[in-house]
């Protein structure tokens, strides 16, 4: 038998997933308690489980805290202008359908400044994955409100409480015909990674809204000053309901009103690529 060893933590200097991250750039820029590192972790785990070689995976991100995620993944990675990663990913995917193109960016980037590209990419059903990290705020610029800030929530530009109702993103994506729509938090790590893996295998536009803590930004204005406050919020308020009525999954963050999670939609629809092949046939390029 092996000899008995006194057990304690072992101090090392690299992790088994360092092959998929740009380890020379760690520690990353995100604040303590920020959920973005966890999103990154789930993404690389999903890649490892995806049966698609890492060389075929591409990540595109925009501007903001989440926008920095592309710089930490050891893949072909593109960090483009504010609001535009979806359009960039569309151009790339259309000319290279063999690549698995994933956009990971923030709520402000993808559905506020970039909302137009978002709705049209879903409508076209371009075969890309869009993982939207929703922290309810513009973190990097100094905690301004955005189109996902819950009604009444405070921020540096809504000192009296946000005066606008926010997007209900799963409903938006589903209404536009997205074949895959899910929402998870950074606490639901395995479900999130599974949803990401599923998204990579779905044909067409796959959308996951990831609710993520921002204790230093949004939290400091709204009584969620510590990452643990968010964990408590998620543990107490999240309900998993895969067949939820998407009209009712808007997020209020009010006490007693749940955050509904799940893989809401998983269906088939012809992709942009499928329809482009039809065009190629009509134009005489394909028989």
């Amino acid at each position: 038998m092996g000899q008995k060893v006194v057990l304690r933590e072992r101090i090392v200097d690299e992790s088994p997933r360092d092959d998929l991250i740009r380890r020379e750039r760690f520690p990353h820029i995100w604040c303590p308690g920020c959920g973005l590192g966890t999103v990154l972790k789930c993404y690389v785990e999903a890649i490892a489980a995806s049966n698609i070689p890492p060389d075929k995976h591409v990540i595109v991100s925009g501007i903001g805290c989440t926008g920095r995620i592309a710089g930490y993944v050891r893949l072909d990675s593109y960090h483009v202008t504010h609001g535009r990663p979806i359009a960039f990913a569309e151009g790339m995917k259309i000319v290279r359908p063999d690549l698995e193109v994933t956009v990971i960016s923030g709520d402000g980037d993808l559905v506020t400044i970039g909302g137009n590209h978002f709705i049209h990419a879903v409508r076209r059903n371009v075969d890309i994955n869009v993982f939207l990290v929703n922290n309810f705020i513009y973190g990097m610029t100094g905690n301004q409100m955005g189109s996902t800030t819950p009604l009444g929530a405070k921020s540096s530009t809504s000192p009296y409480g946000c005066p606008e109702p926010p997007f209900n993103l799963p409903l938006l994506a589903a209404a536009l015909g997205a074949p895959f729509v899910a929402r998870w938090t950074t606490l639901h790590v395995r479900q999130l990674a599974d949803a990401m893996k599923r998204a990579m295998n779905v044909k067409g536009f796959a959308f996951i809204e990831i609710i993520s803590p921002c204790p230093v930004g949004f939290g400091s204005y709204n009584d969620l000053r510590d990452g643990r406050d968010y964990i408590k919020l998620f543990l107490e308020n999240c309900i998993v309901d895969h067949s939820a009525d998407l009209n009712k999954v808007g997020i209020t963050l009010k006490p007693g009103e749940p955050i509904i999670l799940g893989n809401f939609i998983d269906r088939e629809a012809p992709t942009y690529h499928d329809l482009e092949l039809e065009v190629f046939k009509k134009a005489g390029w394909l028989k």
């Binding site: 057990l7 933590e9 072992r10 101090i11 090392v12 200097d13 690299e14 992790s15 760690f26 520690p27 604040c31 303590p32 308690g33 920020c34 966890t38 510590d226 990452g227 643990r228 964990i231």
Partner: peptide, 15 residues
């Protein structure tokens, strides 16, 4: 599980 830690990366979030 044998616990392995990379101290220089930790930011003490407590998760």
């Amino acid at each position: 599980g044998l616990i392995h830690i990379i101290p220089e990366r930790c930011k003490e979030c407590g998760y």
